[in-house]
């Protein structure tokens, strides 16, 4: 499994309190139970902390927008990590 995806999965498991949660690129917000606006903010805060990155204001809610999924989120994260390195 892709290393970044598995690290992301750890964060999701912590935030959604679900040790069995398995992340796939084609998943979106509606596929995960309890993914409401509070949990979304919790998720973004957790990802920023875990990967020591900052999302731009417009990127904070992007993952909840139509057409977005874990795959696009992961690519955004990759870009940020590359820019940081």
């Amino acid at each position: 499994m892709d290393n970044l995806l598995s690290r992301l999965e750890e964060v999701f498991r912590l935030v959604f309190d679900d040790d069995a949660l398995v992340l796939r690129d084609d998943m979106s917000a509606k596929d995960v139970e309890d993914w409401d606006s509070l949990q979304h903010i919790n998720l973004v805060i957790a990802v920023e902390k875990r990967f020591s990155i900052r999302f731009a204001t417009a990127e904070i809610s992007r993952l909840k927008e139509p057409g977005q999924n874990i795959g696009s989120f992961r690519r955004l994260l990759e870009e940020k990590l590359t820019a940081k390195a």
Partner: peptide, 17 residues
């Protein structure tokens, strides 16, 4: 850090919560 105020009206940056 204004980002989370702008998006979610949070009182401070996430590191300060």
């Amino acid at each position: 850090d204004p980002r989370f105020y702008l998006e979610a009206k949070m009182p401070c940056g996430p590191q300060c919560l």
